[in-house]
């Protein structure tokens, strides 16, 4: 699914690399937590997977493709296979729940009939049936994140990337979101999630990759957030 081969990323304006010689592999169907303090390289890792950045050296493989050999016009095809969810939801405020989810399909040219069929299905998966016509500002934070997840998942991507999806939510709501991500994972989608939330990581008992200063300092299946020193 994802293969990093001695990847280093040095941003032009900085002297210290954001990632330094990182090598790791994430298999199909895994649920992976990416943990570490701010500035440890989590976001850079996710941006490299999405080909929003290119590594300074080393190779990144995603979904069987060597991203360094992927030409620009093929990037959209790659991103259609990867759903993305962010801490700040990134919904369109002037569109309803239905329209926000439908937007993701409209802009990749899917026919209207298909949209009418699959959007209600995915809204049911995320538990938002009956709220199709609400605007984002009429929803709670947790519900807004569910819309974002529905939008990321509506095209049935092979992989879901979540960048601190519970960062803006209270613990109770976060549990609901985690249950949803777990359910999506069980439907066969690989999930990579960066987080600061120790409680969630400890409860889920999934693979944990910890970054610090651009290095992988821990890679543990069924791990917990804190390092037991």
């Amino acid at each position: 699914m994802i293969l990093f081969d001695t990847v280093t990323k040095l941003y032009a304006s900085q002297t210290h690399p954001a990632l330094e010689e990182v090598s790791l592999e994430i298999e199909k169907g895994e649920f992976v937590f990416l943990v570490g303090p701010s500035g440890s390289g989590k976001s850079t890792f996710l941006r490299l997977v999405l080909r929003e950045e290119r590594p300074t050296s080393g190779n990144v493989w995603v979904l069987g493709k060597d991203l360094s050999r992927l030409s620009n016009w093929k990037i959209p095809t790659l991103r259609r296979e990867i759903g993305t969810v962010f801490q700040d939801f990134r919904l369109l405020p002037n569109k309803s729940v239905f329209e926000n989810v439908a937007f993701a399909l409209e802009v990749i040219g899917k026919p209207k009939a298909l949209i009418k069929k699959v959007v209600p299905e995915v809204l049911e998966v995320v538990g938002l049936e009956g709220k199709e016509h609400r605007r984002p500002d009429e929803l709670s934070g947790g519900e807004q994140q569910r819309v974002a997840i529905a939008r990321a998942f509506v095209n049935r991507p092979k992989m879901l990337i979540a960048d601190e999806p519970t960062g803006n939510l209270d613990p109770g709501t976060s549990v609901g979101i985690m249950k949803l991500l777990d359910r999506i994972n069980r439907m066969g989608t690989t999930v990579v999630m960066s987080t600061h939330d120790a409680q969630i990581v400890d409860q889920m008992r999934r693979r944990v990759i910890e970054l610090e200063n651009g290095h992988v300092v821990r890679d543990q299946s069924r791990g917990v957030y804190g390092y037991v020193r």
Binding site: W73, P76, L78, T84, F103, V107, N155
Partner: peptide, 17 residues
Amino acid sequence: RRETSIMRLVGASNLYI
């Protein structure tokens, strides 16, 4: 920019954007 950044994320082609 909100719309276009979402379009990029969900894999809309450059032409479509």
